[in-house]
Amino acid sequence: MSIYDFTVKTKRGEDKSLSDYRGKVLLIVNTASKCGFTPQFEELQKLYDAYKARGFEILGFPCNQFAGQEPGSNDEVQQFCKLNYGVTFTIFAKGDVRGETAQPLFKYLTAQKKFAGFDMNHPIAALLLDALQKNFPEYLAGDGIKWNFTKFLIDRNGEVVARFEPTTTPASIAKDIEQLL
């Protein structure tokens, strides 16, 4: 079993085999929310612009499972959302990424790389943890996806080499990508 055995749905509902990405370095992200962690969209685009010529792809999987569940509702979180126009990396069809209804790809990814905690130095980490503990304690248990913008790094052989939580910014993983290119 490898990442290349999975087939996912494009935005238009067509099947796309991940074996089409054989030999590339991939970053697989559950993007969905255009709120809260929105800066990550811009940072992901920067990574894509910087490395796509060297065989790097970002695969975004929108998911509504965390919609309406913004961490906190105070001034620390912006109270508006931005449409993700201008993103040129691939965005696939909306689908679930955690729980029973999760897409098989995400069940595989979370089994390969387990949850190792949030980076509590990230400005939103405390809010996120608090919101999860209060409202969705079950999300914190196990290795399932905790929130939007969980990132999985795949090497050129299809090996899942790293998992980065929402509290790790895309900019800070540039060095990890470079190592694989």
């Binding site: 709120c35 509504n64 919609a67 959302c81």
Partner: peptide, 11 residues
């Protein structure tokens, strides 16, 4: 607004 925007729902 757009679908999946919690602040839109609040408004």
């Amino acid at each position: 607004s757009f679908d999946g925007c919690p602040w839109c729902d609040k408004v």
